[in-house]
Design a protein around this nucleic acid. Structure first.
Lengths: 229, 229
DNA sequence: ACAAAAGTGTTGTGTTTACACCCATGT
DNA sequence: ACATGGGTGTAAACACAACACTTTTGT
């Protein structure tokens, strides 16, 4: 496996599927391409990997440039490398997904050169390159991960109600869940901290607010416990 | 995302963790490196990706060169891209794993330039580069996949006994399983075809041979059914 | 006759599902 | 007073775990 010059013909990028949750729907952050190919198409935010940069750093950098966020959930999903996936040359891309709380996304970042917007998942039908496929792969990963690991919280504000959490799970899994069973299950995990605090100014019985206990959450994660919803 | 020349400094490889199962132990196929760096270390078989080759083709090519096998189970696992993972330069590598029946591996392939051998998993303690990490990541993926998808069969000969299948599961999962529960579970999936045929020449009651029903297996796979052992 | 592995059911325990009504608040 | 979503328990069905003895063959 010698590193000969003939092999430096391939470029290397990352693409980031940034999930957010708002008004009970699941969204992802897209940029509108300003250049050809696929000019004016919506696309996943991404960039080439710098030659002196660890691979995992590239999606962090992209995320921070776009949203101002650091230290959020971000995981590698898969690598896409068909020879014809980029019309301008050979570009292999590593897909990542991240989970962010939309409210925390710095709006200043939107003054970025490219047009930037949250899109509801159900309304995305075409994207540049093979980004549809990449997006669907990441969604699939999110779906299966959310059922067995407590990562849903990453998409919510610090304090949330159980109904908000349930709406989120329903949006991700794309199916309705039983309220009583959902609550029993999620509370039995012991990763929710009762804040003894309530919603205010709602035209119905105010809901209790919960926060999630990052310490117990880490324990649960490392124990690979199972959580079927 | 323009494909500028400054970015063609990175080389691109695949590495393949080839699992086999033999004498009730799980093994992987390693090559002994003939060149520096890591001369005389055991390493995962891999190669650079050709500039005009689909990424997924590269591990197929590596597998075929080494074993003579085609059309076996092969899946992408993850991509490793720390800047310092290869002492000679920047090499990003995509890890794949495959499941093969050791008996089918063409012994002629062993006349390959490099020394080639099956190693028991429990006896592998050091490998070249970051291949230990890659191997462990693939093993982890195999473990979790084998619990929920019927991929174990890929490691066995066409006809096998239920005890052989159980031995395999025990080797992969690293823990003993209850015989009666295992049989109930596996038969209830309906992916095993009773061959009405028995072992011969064994010094005990001969076991029934099963074959697995690829058709039903595909159905089960696509239905994402769950199978906890 | 003995050794070796094959084969086979039942019962208790825990988990999952299905389901309907009262409660607290704002208007 | 009414509309809105919040909050709660129980019973039936199902899945899982634990467990021991008989059968068939070769030597």
């Amino acid at each position: 496996m010698s590193v000969g010059n003939t092999f430096f013909k391939t470029a290397f990028s990352v693409d980031n599927v940034i999930f957010g949750f708002d008004n009970s729907s699941l969204k992802i952050l897209l940029i509108k391409r300003a250049e050809r190919p696929f000019k004016d198409y919506w696309a996943l935010p991404g960039d080439l990997v710098f030659p002196d940069e660890d691979l995992d750093n590239a999606p962090k950098r992209v995320l921070k440039e776009l949203t101002g966020l650091e230290n959020v959930f971000l995981e590698q999903v898969a690598t896409f490398g068909k020879t014809d996936r980029h019309p301008k040359g050979r570009v292999i891309t590593v897909a990542y997904y991240s989970l962010v709380n939309i409210a925390n996304v710095n709006p200043k970042a939107h003054s970025f050169a490219n047009e930037l917007a949250w899109h509801e998942l159900s309304e995305i039908h075409t994207l540049a390159f093979d980004h549809m496929l990449i997006m669907q792969t990441c969604l699939q990963t999110l779906k299966s991960k959310v059922r067995t690991q407590p990562i849903g919280f990453e998409l919510l504000p610090q304090k949330f109600t159980l109904s908000e959490l349930q709406d989120l799970y329903e949006a991700v899994l794309g199916k309705p869940l039983d309220k009583r069973n959902f609550r029993k299950k999620i509370l039995s995990l012991g990763v929710l901290l009762d804040q003894e605090e309530y919603q205010q100014g709602v035209a119905h019985r105010p809901a209790k607010l919960f926060q999630f206990d990052r310490h117990r959450y880490e324990e649960a994660k490392s124990m690979g416990y199972t959580f079927e919803v």
